[in-house]
Nucleic acid binder design. Sequence first.
DNA 1: GGGGAAATTAAGGCAAACTTAAGATTCCGG
DNA 2: CCGGAATCTTAAGTTTGCCTTAATTTCCCC
Lengths: 220, 220
Amino acid sequence: MRILLIEDDESLADGITTALRHQGHAVDHAGTGREGIALALAARPDLIILDLGLPDQDGIETLGVLRHRGVDSTVMILTARDQLSAKVQGLDAGADDYLTKPFAVDELLARLRALERRSGASRSAEIQVGNVVINTASHEVLLNGEAVKLSRREFSLLRALAERPGHILSREQLEDKLYSWGEEVASNTVDVHIHNLRKKIYPEFIQTIRGVGYKLGPGR
Amino acid sequence: MRILLIEDDESLADGITTALRHQGHAVDHAGTGREGIALALAARPDLIILDLGLPDQDGIETLGVLRHRGVDSTVMILTARDQLSAKVQGLDAGADDYLTKPFAVDELLARLRALERRSGASRSAEIQVGNVVINTASHEVLLNGEAVKLSRREFSLLRALAERPGHILSREQLEDKLYSWGEEVASNTVDVHIHNLRKKIYPEFIQTIRGVGYKLGPGR
DNA sequence: GGGGAAATTAAGGCAAACTTAAGATTCCGG
DNA sequence: CCGGAATCTTAAGTTTGCCTTAATTTCCCC
């Protein structure tokens, strides 16, 4: 998943970024509302995490601008515990969820998974496609009940495809989900990971649409 | 919206019920998990508010049973502030959101609006012409329910014609749809692809208007 | 029956995708 | 903080499938 973090506190931002990357997400970071808007328009993230206590402009205002410009990404706002009215405003201004500071990173991650699901197909942390079960919380993948060991990138790739089984994702779209701004790849990395995934699962599970991209197929 | 509240604390339940009804929602109330499951199956609510601290059975378990029985309503769970692991479990078990107790009723209402807004959209990417179904998302084409394997150009051609069934498109117009500027083609390519399409589907599906172009015909 | 339009056919060429392996990088335990 | 293991990226070589071309045949309308 591609995530944009708009947060001025450097150390907090670093912590969140690291945790998210560890989960296999592509993370872009903006330190101000203005910068955040620019990045949101350029990178088209799946999710935006927005701190309401920004220095250059009000967080709510930033959110308003984003929605006005047609950014329809899911938005989670971060706010201080006692700012109830701000939370309510935020939700009504187009945020999808909020988290009160301070929070545990595990909680943030769990919330993200919930949000991810709300817009996607599956209702629980498990996505099933054919005889393959993908657990987005534990990062476990089962093929006919047996565990398959995947690396981080392999898992991210599989998750991206599994969010909408049957839907085709181009190489470019897949790269966008895996790599943040500034760490783009310039090779056939995606091809290679797809190849390795096919070896670990089974070849027909991931189908190639020549000239278009890849999609998950039906069970064998 | 039809809402099911599963909450054992009578006075809290009364307060929430009143507030929700005030907003124009239909509210059912269950005091136990067992009762909640029965009501969920009977009433098919749009939203379920589930307290994790239930007397007769664990709230997480209740949620599991609901999802297992195919209840796909949006679920918001209520939990005590310090029960982090419970929240995380709940979200991963298929809840869409949670709220920590104690909370202000305004906050609950704002959350509901956010949830409501999210569950809209998603239009189908399918075009149907006669007994042929064209799925633009998966590039799948079904003839009487059976998959027909098309190449990229064949698919583009078919989609172009299917966008306006019955309308006549000239070769030139079709070429414009298939080829971007700078890669024009100088032969009877379109004819050839049309021919191959007819072989894969059935000849009468694509009709020739002599001297003008092609159009999609009615089912066989 | 004649001429132009459309259909048919087959083959060569080319770009997309696959495979492999080596070098770079990251991760993790001590 | 270091060294080995796992993983990731790059790039080159190979394979594959498709697209285009063009020559030939069939069809339709005047």
